[in-house]
Simulated assay, not measured.
Amino acid sequence: MLANQRLEFTGNPAHRPENPHKDSPRHPEPYVVSPELKKAVNLAIYLRRPLLLEGDAGCGKTRLASAVAYELGLPLYRWDVRSSTKAQDGLYEYDAILRLHDVQTQKVEQIQLAAEVETDEQEDEERVNRNPANPKHYRKFGALGKAFQLKNHPAVVLIDEIDKADLDFPNDLLTVLDDPWEFKIKETGETIRATHKPIVIITSNKEKGNLPAPFLRRCLYHYVDFPNNAKRLQEIVEKHYQICEEESPPPPDLVNTAIERFLTVWNEGGLFKKPGTSEFLDWLKALHTFEAKPYSATQLKKDKLLPYRELLFKLQQDWKKYAKAS
């Protein structure tokens, strides 16, 4: 891939380059991208601004990063945010305790050598390659740190569920995801500057309310709608079975009936946690292949009790709502 090549995401995994990066996803993502979302991704790539995605759980926010990285043949570095996450965690970690341990181990070995004491023949190969005199051997790069080090092409960085972190976390990221796109490692004295600005995709479920205004101004924003219509779910099913060739696709009449029943459940209200597309695909697979005799469209229409509801409902209230035939 040429460094100055204009990147464009089309939503077609067949456009993957012949020689993708070794850290690029190895398997295509069965992702159906809307024209609006495709344009948002390409704007983010062109402007090199983070793309902030919001939407209901299961609408495909997280999987988009994998689809982009696979098609473009770029490395994907994922950063799963937790309540204790700090901005530095995505840049690097420095293991001072390991360095101190290696210093002490080195002293012991020198004493043993001077006393001609036999040591274990099976040495720790990783430790042998570390030198306590070199602090660079004790820093480990995070998702953004890895992306900043790439010299020939950008990376795709997924910052997943940013709203789980402390409220200061998004603003702390601004010092890195903006010019001059660099950070310092105080323990080694290094300054790491991005040769190619990464393609940053950020997801949020608004668990702690709105993100800070300065951070939102820096991002492009797109709300990912759940594919709440039969045509879009049909496209997702077709794409899924095109890519997952080892799975036999269900007959069209079963697919259509399953979509109709799923959307009825999804739209009738009263659910505390609505199922997403991944739950729907698992449910459809179970209908088609779990039993020795698969469900037929007619059987699914007649069955008052929703089959395999274990795959669709993850909260007690929702489970009980569909535990009895209506």
Rank of each mutant, 00 (worst) to 15 (best):
Lys22Val: 15
Gln317Leu: 09
Leu47Trp: 11
Ala114Ile: 01
Val200Trp: 15
Asn228Trp: 04
Asn228Pro: 02
His137Ser: 01
Glu36Arg: 11
Ser326Gly: 14
Tyr70Asn: 12
Phe226Leu: 05
Pro25Gln: 05
Arg139Asn: 06
Ile45Asn: 06
Ile236Ala: 02
Gln149Lys: 15
Ile202Cys: 12
Val32Asp: 00
Val224Gly: 04
Asn19Leu: 15
Gly276Leu: 07
Leu312Asn: 03
Asn42His: 04
Asn256Trp: 02
Lys314His: 15
Arg232Val: 15
Val156His: 09
Val117Tyr: 06
Arg6Leu: 13
Arg139Cys: 14
Ala292Trp: 05
Trp181Cys: 04
Tyr295Arg: 03
Ile185Leu: 10
Pro17Glu: 04
Arg99Lys: 14
Arg78Trp: 02
Asp163Glu: 01
Val237Trp: 03
Gln122Gly: 00
Ala194Arg: 06
Gly209Asn: 05
Ile111Arg: 08
Lys61Ala: 03
Tyr70Trp: 02
Val108Cys: 01
Val128Met: 11
Ser204Ile: 12
Leu220Cys: 08
Ala155Glu: 04
Phe272Thr: 15
Lys146Leu: 13
Glu268Asp: 13
Ala194Met: 07
Leu167Phe: 15
Phe183Trp: 05
His101Ser: 11
Ser248Trp: 01
Leu233Gln: 10
Asp253Cys: 02
Glu116Val: 06
Trp283Phe: 00
Leu263Gly: 07
Leu174Cys: 04
Ser296Thr: 13
Ile243Asp: 06
Thr257Tyr: 03
Ile111Gln: 05
Asp178His: 03
Arg49Phe: 07
Glu245Arg: 15
Pro212Asp: 08
Leu216Trp: 04
Val157Ser: 05
Thr289Lys: 15
Ala67Gly: 05
Glu187Thr: 05
Gln234Cys: 01
Leu315Gln: 13
Pro50Val: 12
Thr85Ser: 10
Phe183Pro: 04
Lys107Asn: 08
Val157Ala: 09
Leu144Asn: 08
Arg261Met: 06
Gln234Met: 13
Tyr223Gly: 03
Val176Gly: 03
Lys146Ser: 10
Thr257Cys: 06
Glu36Phe: 00
Pro25Leu: 02
Ala258Asn: 07
Glu29Val: 14
Asn256Met: 10
Glu123Gln: 10
Val81Pro: 01
Glu246Thr: 11
Leu216His: 10
Trp266Arg: 14
Trp283Ile: 05
Thr62Arg: 06
Leu312His: 08
Leu167Arg: 14
His288Gly: 01
Gln5Phe: 12
Leu53Arg: 04
His137Pro: 00
Gln88Lys: 15
His288Cys: 04
Ala114Met: 10
Glu245Tyr: 14
Val41Ser: 07
Lys314Asp: 11
Glu116Asp: 10
Asn12Asp: 13
Phe290Asp: 02
Lys61Tyr: 09
Phe9Trp: 07
Asp179Leu: 11
Pro251Arg: 06
His222Gly: 02
His137Gln: 00
Arg48Trp: 03
Lys197Arg: 15
Ala115Ile: 00
His27Leu: 09
Val117Leu: 15
Asp163Lys: 04
Tyr223Phe: 08
Thr191Asp: 00
Asp95Val: 00
Asp160Gln: 08
Tyr241Asn: 03
Asn171Cys: 04
Arg26Thr: 11
Arg232His: 13
Asp178Val: 02
Tyr223Ala: 11
Tyr46Asn: 10
Pro75Arg: 07
Glu125Phe: 06
